[in-house]
Design a protein around this nucleic acid. Structure first.
Lengths: 339, 339
DNA sequence: TCATATCATGCAAACGATTGCACGAATTTA
DNA sequence: TAAATTCGTGCAATCGTTTGCATGATATGA
């Protein structure tokens, strides 16, 4: 009972048939009679048979595992996406191998390596920065293994992607602030190497323009997505004396940091309204509760997984597609001016 | 250049040697001359050779993948642990396959299945509830695949585990509240099927007892680890009219929920001091900042991974061990009575 | 100089499943 | 009733590596 893993040959022996028959029976192959199938399945259970995926994978060329790469799992949006992928993939028989890139090229490279070596049947990934890693993705494509991108896509690759309309997200958020009566709206811009942040910035600018607000360069502050940087940005603003009546941050974390600092001197939202981006869980319970943009992570994951499944199903004539989800502005206290 | 994956045979052909030689050269086998090794490695690179792990795994019986099971990745403690495991495992050549159990038996079962089928060389897991899943873990042990538990261990299994001293965590937290002058300290107890919560409760009780505070059953309120349940618990308290001067919650989430409700009627910490557990990131920026207990997730992950590596290295005479980490009380505003 | 040890490599059998092809038996068609 | 189908299985090759054993070529020692 120790290590004697039972194989299909053992089953075959016990039943006086061939391993071919056992294999086919187990895989519900049409050419096997129902009686035989029953027998085999039964015996398999009785012998506590566990298929060896490796062998099957080696022979069939399909590992039945799919690689999922995200920047980092503790970001709620990515946790949601993974959840969505799991949902969708659950009954397809595929397993998931998760890797984190930590927004870092070296990690990303290693993650790809892990996935390659595991012979995953496909990769669902969110790219890190859009420069420097192109060739990594190129290689995936060259190797002809299905690739689906989500959240952070790379258009040049021409692969299927499911993303949200970051432009609209930025636009709506800014528009909302304008409707609240704000006129001098600053923007915390994220890393401009990353497309989603570019788009949010563009949306912001467009909304200002459409409202006839002349846009000042000093209004855009570069600010990575973390609390500390948000604080620093806010301190910078206070020092500069150039005070806005609203801030639209491309990230909840930065928005939070700013809010912490600004709360000391200003009333939020009355002096300064704040809107974040991503709908991190904490946005609902900080004070004041933060207006933000929901990205529908779970749906994104589901759709990405479905795209992958589709791609696998119609390998030959699969044509890649872009799925763009509409973001949803969630208005909370941090941006509601009483006026 | 399409799908013609290069194999060791291709390399062998190009070099007029055998695939055996190539294999050994690539694996740095001592019986191969340095010259040959150089040649082979070179050619491998030139031919863009990517080893097929599946084949290697099948033959050698080692998949070089290790399974990691956590309740859910968005809990910061688990994200940290995973990070720790990745740190430690990085240069060992092992890859990581992550699975989530969502604290649910069905998911847990499926996760095990995925891992088994992927032929992982070992499993590092945090058990869900300690009832009902015993046999799952038994099976792992029977199959003789290395198993390391973390955070939520199952003593009866007798496998290596790295946990924190939850008793001490509970004790210190309660003791701290007592030192702040609190006398009527309630406890939000987590699911008592889970050992860590039992221990926190025990620590709480012991601290009260040691301080000569007579403990009342009504002080312990059952409260799962989420915000909503924390709110409900707080509402229950307010309705009951039986008001404590402090709450030690076995979870940050529940503590947060309670704080949200209680803030309306009471001053925190002056009327009611609050201490949570886990050092979730939000504890540092809610208001008032929440006192909590840090669990050293990253270290926990590192140690668990190291235990696994040890176990693999000395397979025959490996003796399982318990590693108990000391938790660290982080005192913040929510429990500092000015007095 | 011959026997022995050391080196570097080749041979071929695994690992555990999948799968194209062949084949005999049972059934249908003409 | 002979020929043509259909059905259920078996045979054996294959997937890409690893690895125990054999082998021929050097090197070492007496």
């Amino acid at each position: 009972m120790k290590k004697s893993k039972t194989t299909i040959h053992d089953i075959a022996g016990a039943l006086s048939v061939t391993s071919s028959t056992v294999s086919r029976a187990l895989n519900n192959h049409p050419a096997i009679s129902d009686d035989t199938k029953r027998l085999v399945v039964d015996m398999a259970r009785r012998m506590n048979y566990k298929p060896n995926r490796l062998a099957a994978a080696l022979r069939s060329g399909k590992s039945m595992n799919i690689g999922v790469m995200v920047p980092m799992i503790e970001r709620s949006i990515f946790a949601s996406i993974i959840r969505g992928i799991e949902d969708e993939v659950a009954k397809s028989g595929y397993g998931i191998i998760m890797c984190q890139t930590y927004d870092d090229l070296a990690h990303e490279k290693r993650a790809f390596d892990t996935l390659f070596r595991s012979q995953v049947d496909g990769i669902i990934a969110s790219a890190t920065r859009s420069s420097g890693n192109m060739e990594l993705y190129q290689k995936v494509i060259e190797d002809d293994i299905p690739l689906i991108l989500f959240d952070r896509s790379i258009d040049e690759l021409g692969v299927s992607a499911v993303v949200i309309d970051d432009f609209k997200g930025g636009y709506d958020a800014t528009r909302h602030l304008i409707e609240q009566g704000c006129q001098k709206i600053f923007h915390f811009a994220g890393d401009q190497d990353i497309k989603v942040y570019q788009e949010r910035l563009r949306g912001y600018q467009a909304a200002l323009q459409d409202a006839g607000i002349t846009f000042d360069k000093s209004w855009v502050i570069n600010c990575p997505s973390n609390i500390e940087k948000g604080r620093q940005a806010a301190e910078y603003i206070m020092r500069s004396g150039n005070i806005p009546d609203a801030i639209f941050s491309s990230s909840d974390f930065a928005a939070l940091g700013a809010m912490q600092i600004l709360k000391g001197k200003f009333s939020i939202p009355d002096d300064i309204a704040i809107v974040g981006f991503a709908n991190e869980p904490f946005t609902s319970f900080v004070e004041p509760a933060m207006t933000t943009v929901n990205q529908h992570g779970r749906d994104m994951g589901r759709l990405a997984a479905r795209a992958f499944l589709d791609c696998i199903a119609n390998r030959k004539d699969y044509v890649s597609r872009q799925i763009v989800l509409q973001p949803e502005l969630i208005v909370r206290a941090s941006s509601k001016k009483l006026k």
